[in-house]
Simulated scan of single mutants.
Amino acid sequence: MNTEELVAHFRAGKSVTPGTAEYEALLRCSHEAMRITAELNTAYRSPERIRELMSQLTGTPLDAGFALFPPFYSDFGKNIRIGKNVFINACCCFQDQGGITIGDGSLIGHRVVLATINHGFLPEERSSCRPAPIVIGRNVWIGSGVIVLPGISIGDNAIVAAGAVVTRDVAADSVVAGTPARFIRSITGMTAQEKQACTA
């Protein structure tokens, strides 16, 4: 199985189990992701070189407005789609087998974890990988230390406060905070100081 077939398998929502052709392809992609992120993370890289390496990791060219502060971690890489003028801060972990989409103009804070894989609850099913995509809209601001779980959509212009654990969809133009994340207020009418207090 090649990489494109594996990505299609994940995008169809199908699981991957050890001992299958899909699992062998996943291991191959994981080692490629480790190689690329090792190069990205072990020395200073220019913004242009960072974009080149991230384009290799994702398998798609990135917009000139894309910026990332390493280190950055991914154990797959080929199911990440990033829009224009996206910024990703340091120490983020993207587990993207299930698919991660980030819309134009979004900001991702330090140490954000985007996790798109779950496992079976029963011990004999624990090693299976069950994908579900994360979709982040346009102009979303995700604060430091946020964890987003599989299958979550975050609407355009939303703010996810620092340290939140997002377990359900986030509506557009809203602020969520806490563990699990819950609606705090609409961003309409918020002052700049209030927004800063949310995300830091």
Score class of each variant (00 low, 15 high):
47 P>K: 00
75 D>G: 07
27 L>Q: 15
19 G>F: 04
15 S>P: 11
50 I>L: 07
80 I>N: 04
25 A>K: 03
54 M>F: 14
59 G>M: 11
51 R>V: 11
24 E>C: 01
10 F>S: 12
38 A>W: 07
64 A>N: 08
64 A>C: 03
6 L>F: 10
10 F>N: 03
15 S>M: 10
44 Y>T: 04
41 N>V: 08
76 F>M: 08
63 D>R: 03
47 P>S: 06
15 S>H: 13
31 H>W: 13
70 P>L: 00
76 F>H: 08
71 P>M: 01
36 I>F: 04
70 P>R: 00
26 L>V: 09
61 P>L: 08
53 L>K: 00
47 P>N: 05
58 T>R: 01
31 H>I: 03
10 F>T: 04
23 Y>I: 01
64 A>T: 12
80 I>E: 12
59 G>K: 07
67 A>K: 09
71 P>Q: 02
22 E>Y: 09
78 K>H: 15
5 E>R: 15
74 S>W: 11
65 G>M: 07
38 A>S: 13
35 R>V: 08
33 A>L: 13
54 M>G: 08
55 S>R: 06
45 R>D: 04
59 G>P: 11
9 H>P: 01
78 K>G: 03
16 V>G: 01
20 T>S: 14
22 E>R: 10
70 P>D: 03
29 C>Q: 15
26 L>D: 12
13 G>P: 10
56 Q>K: 13
76 F>T: 02
15 S>C: 06
24 E>Y: 05
18 P>G: 12
55 S>P: 02
65 G>R: 02
48 E>T: 11
47 P>Q: 00
40 L>H: 09
62 L>W: 04
14 K>S: 06
69 F>I: 14
67 A>F: 14
48 E>A: 14
13 G>S: 03
16 V>R: 06
55 S>Q: 01
72 F>N: 02
31 H>M: 07
8 A>E: 15
29 C>F: 00
12 A>S: 09
58 T>Q: 01
61 P>Y: 11
34 M>W: 13
41 N>A: 02
9 H>Y: 12
10 F>D: 08
30 S>L: 03
50 I>K: 00
29 C>E: 15
39 E>P: 04
37 T>S: 07
22 E>L: 02
62 L>R: 01
65 G>W: 01
74 S>H: 05
20 T>G: 13
34 M>Y: 14
19 G>M: 09
58 T>N: 00
16 V>N: 04
33 A>R: 05
4 E>V: 09
79 N>Q: 03
3 T>H: 11
13 G>L: 09
44 Y>N: 08
4 E>Q: 14
